[in-house]
Design a protein around this nucleic acid. Structure first.
Lengths: 140, 140
DNA sequence: CATCATAGACTACAATTGTAATCCAGGCAA
DNA sequence: TTGCCTGGATTACAATTGTAGTCTATGATG
């Protein structure tokens, strides 16, 4: 279980690629800069750091490189969450949910969603879906 | 939501103080170095950074300073969790739990615990008690 | 053709973090 | 007394991160 070495800023590049991939660097810049007030240079730096870290792949196409994420968003979130929960709560989610509840950050909607999640899990008790790819890492 | 500016290494000092406070720096060093292979110097550095950050208080006593945490452990965990969930999941816990479930990191025990948590929460009980997390020794 | 904007490679640079070491004052063992 | 150990203050230093900038080759444009 190695950690996912993607920082917060880099994650925004990943988000762009999760919405649509592959993209050229220009397209990534365009998309990311819609929401972040960054220089295109900054986005390019993030892209190349992600390539270095092996978190996105690059392939040559006519007129430049195209990039696409190595992990899908679900796997990424799983990895990040697992490592956070491991560090902070010894690997168990329930205490985190409890903490949320105590701080009244749990809306009725959340609660309903949690309930149906738990219901589903108790039934199927295996996987609610079909992923596997596990990895971890984070900060915070 | 204010960020809690405590790093992973610093958190281990907090853990010592959550177990018993106030403590002198010597006592903190002694406790922290039981589990971490750090130089006493390192622990002292962490202590003083925590003081600078306002995360622990220092008061003079005969024979030196004593330290104690500003936030209790529950508040700390809430803050850290809230900011993590905000960044990664737009503030909603359910997706995190779902991610956990999908990665099969959710044991039967966890599920049972979640179930009773949800039950309790649905009873309208604003505060659920469920304390027993763990202190992670090493960083992943 | 001359120029100019762009992509990609490399470089920059401060703040934060992990992990100490140095320097100094005071108390304690020899 | 003298010299060591401890605690606190200050300093160190590399890696990571956020946020760019420079240099260069190249294709688009006037």
């Amino acid at each position: 279980m190695k950690d996912i070495p993607v920082t917060d800023a880099e994650r925004l590049v990943m988000e762009a690629l999760w919405k649509s991939a592959p993209l050229t660097s220009g397209e990534i810049v365009e998309r990311v800069c819609r929401s972040e007030d960054w220089s295109p240079k900054t986005v390019r730096t993030l892209i190349s750091r992600l390539v270095d870290k092996g978190m996105i792949n690059r392939h040559s196409t006519e007129g430049g490189y195209s990039y696409q994420p190595v992990l899908d968003r679900a796997a990424f979130m799983q990895g990040k969450s697992a490592s956070f929960v491991a560090r902070m709560f010894g690997g168990r989610v329930a205490p985190l949910v409890a903490a949320f509840a105590e701080s009244r950050s749990l809306s009725d909607d959340d609660l309903r969603e949690l309930r149906s999640l738990v219901d589903a899990l108790e039934k199927g008790d295996g996987s609610v879906s079909d992923r596997q790819d596990k990895e971890s890492g984070d900060n915070d």
